[in-house]
Nucleic acid binder design. Sequence first.
DNA 1: CGGTAAATTGACCTGGGTCAATAAATGTGG
DNA 2: CCACATTTATTGACCCAGGTCAATTTACCG
Lengths: 229, 229
Amino acid sequence: MTDAEQRSLARLEVRERGLRRGAVLVRENEPTGELFILKRGMMMSYVLLDDGSRQILRFLFPGDMLGVSGLVYRRSPETVVALTDSAVCPFDRSEMTGIVTMHPRLAAIIMAVNQMERVALTDRLAALGRTSAKGRVAALLLEIRNRMRALDKGIVDTFTLGLTQEEIGDATGLTAVHVNRMLRQIEDDGLIAREAGRVTFLNEGALAQAANYTDRFSGIDLSWLPEAR
Amino acid sequence: MTDAEQRSLARLEVRERGLRRGAVLVRENEPTGELFILKRGMMMSYVLLDDGSRQILRFLFPGDMLGVSGLVYRRSPETVVALTDSAVCPFDRSEMTGIVTMHPRLAAIIMAVNQMERVALTDRLAALGRTSAKGRVAALLLEIRNRMRALDKGIVDTFTLGLTQEEIGDATGLTAVHVNRMLRQIEDDGLIAREAGRVTFLNEGALAQAANYTDRFSGIDLSWLPEAR
DNA sequence: CGGTAAATTGACCTGGGTCAATAAATGTGG
DNA sequence: CCACATTTATTGACCCAGGTCAATTTACCG
């Protein structure tokens, strides 16, 4: 990445705002304002349905851009909250237009990241539509571990999930009770071990098979990106 | 839109390729090549799971860009097929880099459309995770009608669905048998009428309520787009 | 050291799936 | 235009994965 590109991106992170666990950064249906980059911590986005049930849409990790729907919608289609104490860097929509205008290659990279997120969403769509409860829970465990490992190479088979079983249920379309049963079953099958909120993969291959997991990290090709300006 | 912008977009549509109903345009796991713009007809994208079940990810209508994941992935994560006789305009990835480089405002518009598609996906995720079979079928009927109406203002309450009940099931995460029962129930409730593959909305309000439907068309704000170059 | 949120587990229920048989609709070759 | 073949739609009977409800137990927190 060129110096100019890095400077433009750095400008998105001049301000920083801390968030306590549970703090709401963006609330569904409220006017959208700034966008954010997640600097530290873990967050999630969700929607609430009329009957009060919740669907968690996505877990957010450092480096992710938050509240991007604010670019397009006057009111936010989703709520964004902190799952752990976190820090975000707010920036204005106009910063985005500046980047797109001045750095076409960054614009292309943002489009590429959007595509990767879209594919992650369609993978979850297929999981909710067509896989068993056990498979969905297994898929969630793999997804969280993979995201954590991408940020911290020290994480391999053991990690702190940091989610309640109710949250796992709201992400996978299950009830907390059934999530509990599925975790127990996965544990009894010898695929994972659990203790004090930490999960250890004992048989990642079998877990991936149960989850119908497809690795999307390999197979990425960004050779089409334009030259840096 | 400026002349230059229109010329650039028109260059994406110089070639045209016809597709018969059922023709596969892009096959899952096969190398990605060109991108496409759907010119005429209706198509869909889907993934197949290990057990042979299918999840339909999206229905595609004229104006939609197809195979965009080819920008990022060496092999396609999804299959794209024609639901009716259709026509697409293939173009090379390099055309995309050209547009992004020369027309920042078009790049921004593409990013905006991506966001709208992402929100449509999260709406479906919430439907699969947290709504009843009847609600999901109702939501699908509304979605298809709305997309058709956006292209043909003449369509109001009556339209040709153009999907088998098995396809509706693969989109909503249900079996064809249960889709049949839900359609019958929605009909018996007086919300729709059916005859010869055509559906008529008799009580759109109740249908929207059953579907937990949220209108995303209003509420769009593109004031942040950069100036045309 | 309470007090509240989260995890577990059992008993029982139901929305949606499975299987199977027909009926309708849509094509196709002649 | 007709007879036959293949999808697609329907419906009934029955089953089960996952939900509901309720009671404990355990972990976390000020």
